[in-house]
Amino acid sequence: MKSIAEIKAIREKMQSQIILRENSEEGETRLVVGMATCGISAGARPVFNTLVDEVAKRNLSKVKVTRAGCLGMCKLEPIVEVFVPGQEKVTYIQVDSEKAKRIISEHIVNGNVVNDYLITSEV
């Protein structure tokens, strides 16, 4: 069974990584999931947890997954906003776990915006 004491081992491993990270100039990429009542009921929680899983699994050290309240377009939830330093904000709509995985692999890892999930004039 896991216990909080195990965090110590993870911490020690991370502390060595952080020293490496501090030497690089890159800023932090942020993935923001809308998680007000509208987002949650549309399925934002599994999206959030998938993003956390993928970032942890791929060891993406400069990527942070956070949540926000209502992003203002309830019918398009779950919404994920991607902030890459030095680039314009990208907004993905009606995201699910599968889409979240593709956003990580194509956009965050490879730097290609996933055009299929963007807001278009038809929505």
């Binding site: 991370m14 952080i18 899983d53 993406l60 942070k64 997954v65």
Partner: peptide, 12 residues
């Protein structure tokens, strides 16, 4: 000094 919202910590 490690932030609690680090994805690896969150998974744990």
């Amino acid at each position: 000094d490690i932030p609690m919202d680090n994805p690896e910590i969150l998974v744990f």
